[in-house]
Each structure stands twice: as C-alpha cells, then as structure tokens.
C-alpha cells in the first residue's frame, strides 16, 4: 500500500512538473516586453530595461524557470504585473470563492447524475434510457456561456426572480450567497450531469449483468435490496473516480461561468490576467488549476482503493 501510494504521488509530481514546463514556455511565446507593458509606450528605454532587470525577465530562460518553480514550491508565486502585489494571496482568496461555487455545483450535480445514470441503467434500451443519455451528452457539448445566457434571459431578465450576477457583495448572509449562486450553477450542472450519468449507467449495467447479482436475484432477495446492497455498492466505485476527474475540469470550466456572471473566483482572475497579459498571475493560476486536478484525482484513487476490498487486499499483499 505504501509503495503504491508513493508511486502514485511520484507520478502526480512528475506530471505536475511537466505541466509547469509546458505553462512556463507557453508564457514565453508571448511577444512583447513585460516592463514595456507595465510602464506604457512613453517610458524611456532605460526605465524599461531597469524594470525588466528588476522583474528578472532579462535572465536566461532556464534560470527564470528555476526561480519561478522553486518559488512556487515555497508558496511564492511572484508579483502580479496588473495588481503590483504578490500573486499568492489574490489567488488564494479567489480559490476560496471558486471552491464555494464548485461545491454548490457538485452538491447538485452528483445526486442528479447518479440518479440519472441508475434510472437509465435500469431501463436500458428503453426511451427513458435514450432520453437521459442523449440529453446528458447534448447538454455537455453546449458551451457554458450559451446555457448561462439562456438562464439569464429567462430567470433574471424575463421572470426577474434571480439576480443576473453572482457576486452577492461583502457580508452577505449564507442564504443570500446561495441565491446569487443558483444561476451560475445551472451551466455547470448541464456541463457535467451527462458524464456522471454516463459512467454510473455503464457501471450499473455491468453490475446488473454480473454473477453476484444473478445469485442475489435467484436467492430470492427483493429487487430493492439487490439494487441497493449489491448493484449500487459496486457500480458507484468508478463514479467516484469520474467525479474527481470532473472536479478538476469544473474548476477550469469556471473561467467562462465566472466571467459571464461576474463572480470573483479563479476563473475570472485568470481571464483578467490573460487579457491584461499579467503573466505571473496567469501562469500561477493555470498551475494551480493543474494542482487542484491532480489532488482531486489522487484523492479519488485513494478513496476508490480504500472502498474496494479487492484492490485493498491486493495492494497490502
């Protein structure tokens, strides 16, 4: 078990390092001079050169990468060009906001997706199954901003029952915050419902066709008991992994939703950083999203190993 854990962790760290190289060099493709971007077109060349030196962007690429990545390990993500203050606290505050939005979305998505998948599996090939599968798949391919626009037009502009922006303002009560988050959650639900339903459906069908389910049925157990005790316990395992994978994507998908609903999370921060060419912020933000994804998948792996007795014993051997 310990070796498995270490191996899994090692792989995650290697992947994250690769990702950091990718992000860093993608950032270097950008034409233009960071100091020039900060000081504007009328600054003297010597001022630009001295700020470049101060920012460290006149050093060799490898040196820059090394100081960036070793700083990142120590929690120092650099200074934002745009806000002229350290990136880490800004990103931290935004991450908390994004986490709230993501948590609310997951609380809605997971039960809906699991129930949808199980219902589809119990009705394989029938209209209910086709309906759930096709709706889920179609909803997932419609971009978040399209769904967002539609719900804004209907619920905020037409019926005027919900606010069109997600920012409840400082000091808002929990209930008010929730109310402001209802509309932004809808596009996320559309986006991710289909995947969770699809995986749940596939693994539930597999469990329904298994020998142990047949044994349970032939033993004379009630259908409810068979499904609850034998089918679901097995079929929900793969779903956990998928949910974790999707959690990573969820944080990433927030760029669009947070921009549309003007919500102060990581997504909007990244979007602003990108349009303002604030590279320290952009690179740190993308790396953070990668790290969140890695952590989520790692946790899912551990959780499904822990929940699955077969894997557990195999690994402890």
């Amino acid at each position: 078990m310990a070796t498995y854990l270490l191996r899994r962790l090692g792989l995650a760290i290697i992947t994250l390092l690769l990702l950091s190289v990718l992000i860093f060099f993608a950032g270097q493709v950008l034409p233009g001079d960071p100091a020039r971007a900060i000081l504007g077109p009328f600054a003297s060349q010597s001022a630009v050169a001295s700020l470049d030196h101060q920012l460290g962007v006149d050093r060799p690429l490898l040196t820059q990468y090394w100081s960036w990545i070793s700083g990142a390990v120590h929690g120092n993500l650099g200074i934002s060009y745009q806000y002229r203050s350290p990136v880490a606290p800004l990103l931290g505050a935004a991450l908390v906001n994004s986490a709230k939005l993501a948590a609310f979305a997951l609380v809605v998505i997971i039960p809906l997706g699991v129930i949808g998948g199980v219902v589809a599996a119990l009705n394989v090939g029938r209209p209910a199954d086709r309906l759930i599968s096709l709706t889920g798949l179609s909803a997932a391919t419609v971009p978040e901003f399209v769904t967002g626009i539609v719900v804004i037009v209907i619920f905020a502009d037409g019926l005027k029952i919900l606010p069109p922006s997600a920012a409840a303002g400082p000091g808002a009560s929990f209930a008010t915050q929730l109310r402001y988050l209802i509309l932004p959650v809808v596009p996320l639900v559309f986006e991710f419902f289909g995947y969770i339903a699809r995986i749940t459906r596939a693994s539930t069908i597999e469990a329904l066709e298994s020998d142990y389910t047949r044994t349970a049925v032939l033993k004379g157990l009630k259908r409810r008991v068979v499904i609850g005790r034998h089918v679901l316990r097995n079929s929900l395992l793969p779903t956990i992994t998928v949910i974790a994978t999707q959690t990573g994507y969820l944080i990433g998908g927030l760029v669009v939703v947070e921009t549309l609903f003007n919500y102060p999370g990581v997504g909007r921060l990244l979007y602003n950083a990108a349009t303002e060419k604030d590279f320290p912020m952009l690179e740190a933000g993308v790396l953070l999203i990668g790290a969140v994804y890695m952590t989520a998948t790692l946790l899912a792996d551990l959780l499904s190993t822990w929940l699955n007795p077969r894997l557990r014993t195999e690994l402890s051997r």
């Binding site: 950032g27 994507y249 990433g252 990108a274 993308v286 999203i289 990668g290």
Partner: peptide, 11 residues
C-alpha cells in the same frame, strides 16, 4: 490535467 479550453486559451 487542464481542461483543453484553458490550454488553448493560454496559447
């Protein structure tokens, strides 16, 4: 590890 949209956006 990143949604494709984010990478494409970055590039």
């Amino acid at each position: 590890a990143l949604p494709a949209v984010i990478i494409i956006f970055l590039f």
